Amino acid sequence: MTYEELLTQTALENEKVIVMTAENRALIRNLPNLLGKRFIDTGITEQTLIGAAAGLALRGRTPVVHALASFLTMRAFEFFRTDAGIANLPVKLSGFIPGFLSDANGPTHQAIEDISLMRGIPNVTVFAPADEDDLVKMLPTIWNSAQPAYTRINTRQTNFVHQPFEMGKAEVVSIGTDVTILTYGLLFEQALVAVDILKKEGLSTGLINMRSLKPVDEQAILETAALSDLVVTLEDHFVTGGLYSIVAEVLLKHAKTARVMPMALKDKWFKPALLPQVLQHEGFTGKQIAENILGYKTSYTQSQISLPEFSE
């Protein structure tokens, strides 16, 4: 099932669902004719879009709101914070082309601080599916929730079949004692490649899809930190405020510590290009991820080796 098929089915079964967009119809082209007045396009006016969605939510509707992720989370930030977050209204944001999926666009269109912004708003829940299979398994639960939500929309096709979704629970793909990669969204694909390479190098390697970022699976993070020698946070987001920050917050909250290696964008936007070139240039291909992890493990292992004592 595709995103559009799921949304169509949901809206036809529940007349309270209103589909809204700020002139961003790429994945919902067939819905205007099917939904009539329950499809609303405000034009390129994201702030108006959010305000209208909040008004509809106050009247018992569930607005599913579409725009580019960068504009939903930044241009309309105050409106979402004030109108939906403070009021705790079930406005459901569908952010298109988040992270590296905005591959050919420059910094103005790159949503790489969206997780940080959205999870900082009280009441707002935050989700990042790994691919379209993950997306359609997650959205029914997200849309049925009474809370406001932000979802990074990811309709990429992969061969991976995901586990059923439970809000606040991570998807444990494999368990590792040497290295465990925590990731979400698009980079799950590359993490699968990296895990395969690391296993061939003889490392016990785990992989966890952190699909629900708020609420987050604290138990999965704590168990990983206790079991795995190295925890890697992998994300197409700034290092500040994303998964690396989430892991640090959870560990500190529970007075735990771990060796954590962040792989994220460090105080810079990514170079626009086609997606394969973006991943290669920024160092986020599966091969590069594995190489960086191997290099990191080698460096800290060597630093732990004590020099022999020589007696005279």
Rank of each mutant, 00 (worst) to 15 (best):
T257F: 13
P164T: 05
R75E: 08
L49P: 10
H237T: 03
K214V: 02
N144S: 13
L58H: 13
Q147F: 13
F188W: 02
K214P: 04
F71I: 11
A146G: 05
T42N: 05
R211P: 05
Q163A: 12
L265N: 09
I181H: 08
K256V: 05
T2D: 14
Q302W: 01
V19W: 07
L27N: 06
Q277L: 12
G95R: 10
T10H: 14
I121M: 11
G60T: 10
R211C: 09
A220I: 07
Q302F: 09
K214W: 01
Q110N: 10
K199L: 07
A67L: 10
D178R: 01
G99P: 13
Q302M: 03
K199S: 02
E223Q: 07
V231K: 04
I115Q: 02
I121L: 14
S102A: 15
A220R: 03
V173I: 15
I246G: 00
V193T: 15
E166C: 04
Q302P: 00
I175T: 10
D131R: 05
D83R: 11
L35T: 04
M263S: 00
V231Q: 03
L93Q: 11
G286S: 09
I181W: 06
D236K: 05
A57T: 12
Y300A: 00
Q9T: 11
N154M: 04
L31G: 08
A104F: 14
L35S: 03
A248C: 13
I221N: 03
F96C: 06
G168A: 03
T158V: 06
N88A: 15
A130L: 01
A258K: 05
L243M: 14
R156W: 11
N123R: 09
R156C: 04
I221H: 08
A57I: 09
L6V: 02
K200S: 11
V260K: 07
G51N: 15
L182R: 03
D133W: 00
E4W: 04
L6I: 02
A111Q: 08
S311R: 05
K268W: 11
M167L: 11
L89F: 13
Q277A: 14
R211F: 02
P90V: 09
G106H: 11
M1N: 05
P129C: 04
Q219V: 06
G120K: 06
T298W: 01
V173Q: 01
T183E: 01
L58Q: 15
K169E: 04
A149Q: 05
E309N: 00
E4H: 01
F77C: 05
T45Y: 06
V260Y: 02
L187R: 08
T73R: 07
L34Y: 07
L274C: 00
P63D: 06
Q47R: 09
K268M: 08
